[in-house]
Design a protein around this nucleic acid. Structure first.
Lengths: 146, 146
DNA sequence: CTTTATGCAAACGATTTGCAATCCT
DNA sequence: AGGATTGCAAATCGTTTGCATAAAG
């Protein structure tokens, strides 16, 4: 039973994910998903491109794939700064949020999900001067009829 | 008592705000703050520029002012989309969050601030398929010693 | 009068697009 | 085969920068 899971190598898992989302199986797509499964991120498109083995694909392909992954909800984008979007694999079983340092920009993550608990938990981690951004995205009443 | 408050016109209020933040008093700054006090936003830099009376200032000045306002926390930036930053006046007495429609991109705001209450409140407003983005910004332990 | 802010033009950087060649199914 | 995907080059768009001029304290 448990051994079955072990036998599934990364390629099988990645192909499964792509098929689930009805995306065709190509080398760049497989490599990008593999990377995002292995390393938690979030990473910018450029970071992802640089982490891929040389000559995997063009940087434009990375952008195109990431956009498709976001559309199909395989990947989640974060907008910390105006300069660039950061992407990470969207694992529904590991819902989490981020904290970025205003100064060094290092991003940390945590799994608490109640606002007041969060601030306490971050304070324990040594963060000071904590602010947050909370935005909701949905489909409004008007757009549901069209 | 109450009449004193009424006598303070917008210019006085705006000058007060700028002085508080130790920013020099210039026409573009006054006009931008006035606009953000009158209209709640959030607006993009371009929208703000277009809402200003013609020939108030250059669009570059709008960007420069908004950046200073964000630095001094007079204004709050939001990063809904990758395309542009949206700004609004930062009134600490009216803490709120936003919801954007995935389709028409219209932005609405609300004042609830507990996650589960929020989702209920948004559902009552007619939103469907609600997701959220919650990011924290602070200064990490390492950066406090430097 | 010294500093700071502005306008204009040009630069920038992340992301997107057009199109021909190539890969998936 | 036929539609989707890629690479390359060029375009796009929001935002920033350099520098000379003008306004603020």
């Amino acid at each position: 039973m448990a051994s079955i899971k072990k036998d599934i190598n990364w390629e099988t898992k990645v192909i499964e994910l792509l098929k689930e989302k009805k995306l065709s199986i190509t080398v760049p797509r497989k490599m990008i998903i593999r990377l995002l499964l292995k390393e938690h991120g979030p990473f910018s498109a450029e970071e992802i491109y640089n982490k891929l083995p040389k000559n995997t694909c063009d940087q434009v392909t990375v952008y195109r794939c990431l956009n498709q992954f976001v559309e199909t909800q395989l990947v989640t984008p974060s907008y910390f700064e105006k300069e660039m979007v950061l992407f990470e694999f969207n694992d529904p079983h590991h819902h989490h949020h981020h904290i970025i340092c205003k100064i060094c920009k290092k991003i940390d993550s945590f799994h608490d999900c109640i606002l007041n608990k969060i601030e306490t938990s971050l304070a324990k981690k040594g963060y000071k001067d904590i602010q947050h951004r909370l935005e909701f995205i949905g489909v409004c009443g008007a757009c549901q009829n069209s």
